[in-house]
Design a binder for these strands. Sequence first.
DNA 1: TGTGTAAGTAAGTGACTACTTGCATTTCTT
DNA 2: AAGAAATGCAAGTAGTCACTTACTTACACA
Lengths: 208, 208
Amino acid sequence: MNHRDAILAAAAGVFAQHGFRGSTTRRIADAAGVNEITIFRQFGSKEALIRAAMQHLTQSAGLATLPDIPSDPERELTAWSESFMQHLRLHSSIIRKTMGEIEERPEMGECATEVPRRASNDLCHYLLALKRQGRITEKFEPKTAAAMLMGAIFSDAMGREMMPENFPQPKEKAAHMYTRVLLRALGVENGSRKATNKQTKRSKQLSN
Amino acid sequence: MNHRDAILAAAAGVFAQHGFRGSTTRRIADAAGVNEITIFRQFGSKEALIRAAMQHLTQSAGLATLPDIPSDPERELTAWSESFMQHLRLHSSIIRKTMGEIEERPEMGECATEVPRRASNDLCHYLLALKRQGRITEKFEPKTAAAMLMGAIFSDAMGREMMPENFPQPKEKAAHMYTRVLLRALGVENGSRKATNKQTKRSKQLSN
DNA sequence: TGTGTAAGTAAGTGACTACTTGCATTTCTT
DNA sequence: AAGAAATGCAAGTAGTCACTTACTTACACA
């Protein structure tokens, strides 16, 4: 097996557990089953190694996509929310560490903000598409709506372990519940587009 | 001025900047304008000092209160949200550090979760009171609603600096905007109770 | 067979860490 | 003014940290 990849994986794991200062080169080397010197020969310095490990991680991060043309908002948004929450929960340790050290190591922040940036963009686009379809009956500001849904999911993923009684039960349904609250705030009705009857010209144009 | 308090304040400040491992006794002593030895004589160990500093902090944390009997939900909830957000923003550094180190030092977490626990409780009670008044027209689950509002505020306070384009502008109005989205989701109408007119039987019953 | 490359071993460097000891000095209390 | 407590200073201990140097081993390829 490739030593370089083993070191990268070990570095990510140790960093998630102990943060930057706690990620000693000795610990990483032990976790990777590799001599400490090999790390310096491969990556030059501890800082370069951690940076490489972080980039290696974010590259492999996948995010569910939202359709360009909404059809069944509740189903589509719920699926998206669930995948977003799953991603955050999977990486909650490393995200917490990165956030805690962002003032000391802001470079790592740019790498960590990539996923939420893209998620916010995707979500805003979807909501605007819903609006264009005339399915959002309330006045709304896309960034506020997106920030609310993402904020709820983010806090849940970060904080549920620390204080489970502050969050809806069971955790498997939380993403769905947040999504429904948002849709209600926007005045979006249940059901897929074909079942909708309020929409007329515009949505029919788009669906053909 | 009291040396003990100076040390506690310095410890909190250094911890907010550098976290536990980065809070060296030398740095704290320098920040407090005190000899390093004094720290050990006063607190025994670095760990005891940091713990004392954290408790000292949470004791002085105030939180806005919500009335037992809601009158003007938008005004009252907005004020509460703003005060909650201000508190989180003021302590964002220390909160991020504590979250990042919670796996290594879980004792500190109990101290850090006190404020959000109380906030969630207060908010849920207020929402249930609104429900009892018949002013919430939609089906709703209080913890989900509370988690959404608090989650949005929390994420905003933690993440806006890192990625301002993901959040509504200007930041001074964000708390108000989140509050309004939530109220719309719950079907709560604007204005104070006496000014309400759309509500018919139930609300009139209650208001007289 | 010879050469280059990646890996390991052993030893050590200098800086920093929490924390201690012994003694002198200041500050507060009585 | 006298005694006690708090504080400062100088020096040191034992440990850890990232990183280096010098040398050896294993393997691939030509």
